[in-house]
């Protein structure tokens, strides 16, 4: 194989990989956008923490149906909502968080949050860990969660 052929093949391969990457990006997030992703730092080993974010809907109605983190971050992850009933706050697990087309949903303190249970290590401010978000449409988005002082 001549040097020229090899260079051409490398270019073709490069463009193909780039194209596939862009296609995956477009296909996977379906126009969904996730921003301002953070979790409050927690001193507790084996404790619980909450992750928050803003999710902007894509072209179609969708719903966040699950989230997961690496086993060295937390043992279990669920979607939760804090509610107030008769003056008392409590958390309920929810099976999905609706994300309307073109709308925006905030996961924020006192409302929806991604609940991390069984923390392997305390969450220290400045740390970043990945969370995989799975949507009803099949779209998956991996976001970086920034741990902030709290």
């Amino acid at each position: 194989m001549s040097e020229r052929t090899r260079t051409a093949l490398m270019w073709i391969l490069g463009v193909a990989v780039l194209g596939a990457g862009i296609w995956m990006l477009v296909k996977d997030d379906d126009g969904l956008r996730v921003t301002d992703v953070w979790a409050r730092s927690s001193p507790m080993v084996d404790g619980a923490a909450a992750a928050y974010m803003n999710i902007q809907g894509g072209a179609e109605d969708d719903a966040l149906v699950s989230a997961s983190v690496a086993a060295d971050v937390a043992g279990k992850v669920e979607l939760h909502e804090t509610r107030m009933v008769d003056g008392k706050h409590s958390m309920q697990m929810v099976l999905g968080i609706d994300i309307p087309a073109g709308g925006s949903v905030a996961l924020e303190p006192g409302g929806y949050h991604i609940m991390l249970m069984g923390l392997v290590e305390p969450l220290e401010p400045g740390e970043i860990f990945d969370t995989d978000l799975v949507f009803e449409s099949g779209a998956t988005i991996t976001v970086e969660v920034e741990v902030r002082e709290g």
Binding site: S42, G47, P109, G110, L116, G150
Partner: peptide, 13 residues
């Protein structure tokens, strides 16, 4: 309570 991940740490912070 300490295993409260949302309301309590938000309040204490």
């Amino acid at each position: 309570y300490t295993s409260c991940p949302d309301v309590c740490p938000t309040t204490m912070a």
